[in-house]
Design a protein around this nucleic acid. Structure first.
Lengths: 198, 198
DNA sequence: CCCGCTACTGCATCGTGATTCAGTAGTAGA
DNA sequence: TCTACTACTGAATCACGATGCAGTAGCGGG
């Protein structure tokens, strides 16, 4: 039985994916190298073979997740024509909904970023790129006259902040209560920012 | 030299204060019992004498901090007469500003709360009480006709979310950039929610 | 079919930090 | 001043998880 020997690229990817899964579930510190390894039916040593140490593994895992998220955003909005539609799509993806696995990861990331400069860098990058994407959409809509935004960059910034806050409320404080209401509020906030019909 | 033997109540308080300080600075997992002890020039055993174990210590520390924050809010707004003034005071206290030691603690808390039900409870409680206080102020202002808010509870909720989001932007992503702009945005958001002159 | 590279493993080590425990010393009340 | 209670300590222990190391085994190229 071929003990499933894999190409480095592939294996690394698997490991990162598994790591992200575990971090989402248990948080950075609770994840053990052994957990990640077990998840792939592989020895702990192999993980260390591919990643210098736990710190590096975690850092790369966050980077990987950020990369993946941004790519997904691109993919989702790529073939959407109008600005309002692109906006709707982007927000539907970003806004905290369901159990929002992704958000757990990033909330965990925020805390970690407070102390690890490397992680802060990654988080900042993701945040920045997301905002850029949002700005692009907004400016697009402004050009076509569908949106009204004196300060697209500021608007994107504020929308992002509001959504981040929603995420905290939803995942940390929120009972499972009224997802609809939250979404309505998000919509309203965006509408106000972009001068749409409330 | 009286080895500074202290009453349980006093000592527990000291320990909790020290713990909070350390958690703010280094995060839950990086804090060692020994650090807290050293901070008070006391043996690690003493900390364990007062708190069953680290988990209990951390949990109580967060509870303690929440308590302290709420009391401070009460104290600050107690002798302020008008609703707009009370609001300004409350927001000035809650909004992320300076290095916002407090916010670091709560961001850390959010992440921890994702996994520890006990901490989630504490966070939820603090969040709830803060929002209640805010609601009270808003309703007050509505009664005197100074604010306009069809849904005070919703408004409080959204303001809180926005401020939480601001905090993340400021502490995690934000360069030290434009504190003024952030404050202006916060003010604007609140103004819009409460029907004030933008 | 053999070689050499590289993915991969098991085991041993090693540091760290929480928790335990048996005892010491202030201190308040009789 | 003696007693008993309670705050407090120092020195183990103990478990856990990361990392190091010496070696094994697929697999592609000749």
């Amino acid at each position: 039985m071929s003990r499933s020997r894999k190409d480095t690229t592939v294996r690394r990817d698997e490991i990162l994916r598994a790591t992200v899964r575990h971090v989402e579930q248990s948080g950075i510190h609770a994840v053990r190298m052994a957990d990640v390894a077990a998840d792939l039916s592989v020895s702990t040593s192999l993980v260390l073979y591919h990643f210098k140490n736990k710190e590096a593994l975690i850092a790369e895992a966050f980077t990987w997740a950020a990369q993946r998220d941004l790519e997904k955003l691109d993919r989702l909005t790529a073939d959407v024509a109008t600005a309002p539609e692109r906006l709707r799509t982007a927000l539907a993806w970003y806004a905290p909904t369901g159990q929002a696995k992704g958000w757990r990861l990033w909330i965990e990331g925020w805390a970690a970023a407070l102390r690890e400069p490397e992680l802060r860098q990654v988080g900042r990058e993701l945040d920045l790129r997301w905002k850029e994407a949002l700005v692009a959409i907004i400016q697009d809509g402004v050009h076509t006259g569908e949106f009204t935004a004196p300060d697209p960059r500021g608007a994107a910034w504020r929308i992002t902040a509001f959504l981040d806050g929603l995420a905290v409320q939803a995942l940390v404080h929120g009972g499972v209560q009224n997802r609809e209401r939250m979404q309505a509020w998000a919509r309203r906030h965006v509408a106000q920012e972009l001068g749409l019909a409330g």
